[in-house]
Structures are given as structure tokens and as C-alpha cells.
Design a protein around this nucleic acid. Structure first.
Lengths: 116, 116
DNA sequence: AAAGTATATAAGCATATACTTATATACTTA
DNA sequence: TAAGTATATAAGTATATGCTTATATACTTT
């Protein structure tokens, strides 16, 4: 059972809020789609700024937000810092989000049953 | 295959952005947890303002955001307007979000294989 | 050491968000 | 019809966000 008013619920909700905020931006979503699809495995600040047609600092800031939310990890390779998915954290994020939807659906189904 | 630069991708990404933005707020997340968990099936503006300890207009604005993102639907019942999950839309939202994570994971696994 | 390249940070600006109080609207009911 | 109740909207304010330009930092390479 979800305990909405507990301290731990508030904390984990604030964590989920940070992840959702990080995802809730068109440029960052498009970047994530790029990384999730076939066409690129990792991306650098310079590459992102070119791909999205934004300045280098804007790209740096977007990638920082995604890194801080544990969606991406940064790894220096040669002259570049490449950002790619933080798999372990992404699994946690997905579980949390999926749990939310699953609870919502089971509630919806329960209500539909009761209405009959 | 994801086509990142197509018009339809941009449009559906903007729709997903709206949903994620609507979810990316502690008060709204806590409300959704409440609706998804056992303790309440539907909520009115007045109930939300009391539960969250916010003013009536603040509650009204939060519920409007969730309704506009097709997360909740409003239905007048007696003296109250009750908000509850919009099941059909929620299914669409979940599919989109799940697809994103599934793509990300398959990419992660593929990269792990290549590194071996 | 100097110049070049990649990234990060600082500062500023316009817009968005989350709240507030005040007020309007829509119903009910005394 | 007047008062009460539930909700929505308007207007204002403080803070957050997303961008910009300018500058700093960290490496490389001549």
C-alpha cells in the first residue's frame, strides 16, 4: 500500500519529480530518443549543440541536468566527454514510473468493475 | 526505427513533454499517488486543497493542468466536480514512456555486448 | 610556452511556473 | 430572491527555466 503522507514517500516523490523534470523538455527528449534509437550510442556537448542547433553552453546545461537526474553518465574518451545512458539508474526510474501507472490502471479497472 | 527529425516525431515529443511537465511536480505527483493507491478513487478541488494544504485556486490550477494533459478527467457529481484518471489517455502515455525506456535499455544491452 | 579545442561556469534576460489574494461564475438551498 | 457552496479565473509576485554572450578551466598539440 502507498503511504502518501510518510516522509520516505515525500522524499522518493521529490526524486521522481527531478527525473520527470529532467525528461520534460523537448530538446532533452529528442536527445534521449536519439540515444535510445539506432543512430547514436553516446553524445558529446559539441555534438549535441550541432545536432539541436543550440549554443555549446546550452548543450552543456542540458546534459548536466540529465546527468544530475541520473539519466546519463559522463565518461571522458580522448578529447571528448561522452554522455550515455546510466543503465542502473534508468532501471530504477522506469520501475518507479511503471509502478505509478500500474497502480493507476488497477484502480481504473477496479472502478470500472464497481460501476457495473 | 525512430526518425528524430521528422515533423510527427517533434509533435508527439511535444505532447509527451506536456504530460511529463504535468507529472513533474511534487503536489501533483502526491495527488496521483493518492488516486492510484487504495485510499481515494476521485478528488474534488476542495478536497485537494485540504489534503495538500494549499489554497482552493492552487488546487484548481493543478487539477486543470492534469486535465489538460489528459491525465485526469472531470465529472460533475452532485455539488462537486470530481477528477479521476483518464484511463484511455493514461494507457497512451504509459505506452509512450515505456517505449522510450525499452529502447534505451535495448541500446544499453547492445552496447554492453559490444564492449565484451 | 602559445594556440587550439572541448567543456563548464557566470551573468543577464525573457518567459514559465507555482503560489497568493481578490473576484467572478454556477449552482443550491433556505 | 438572497445566502451559501464549489469551482474557475484574474492579477500580482517570487522563483525556476532555457536560452544567450562572455569568460574560465582543462587538455592537446604545435
Amino acid at each position: 500500500m502507498l503511504r502518501i503522507n510518510s516522509r520516505s514517500t515525500l522524499e522518493s516523490t521529490e526524486e521522481l519529480e527531478e527525473v520527470l523534470k529532467a525528461l520534460a523538455n523537448v530538446n532533452r527528449l529528442l536527445l534521449i530518443y536519439s540515444l535510445a534509437s539506432g543512430d547514436m550510442n553516446k553524445i558529446s556537448v559539441t555534438e549535441m549543440s550541432q545536432k539541436m542547433d543550440i549554443t555549446q553552453p546550452a548543450a552543456s546545461q542540458h546534459l548536466k541536468i540529465l546527468k544530475n537526474a541520473n539519466i546519463l553518465v559522463a565518461k571522458k574518451e580522448g578529447n571528448y566527454i561522452y554522455y550515455k545512458f546510466n543503465r542502473r539508474s534508468m532501471e530504477k526510474h522506469q520501475k518507479r514510473i511503471d509502478f505509478l501507472f500500474t497502480c493507476a490502471f488497477s484502480k481504473c479497472k477496479q472502478l470500472e468493475k464497481e460501476e457495473k
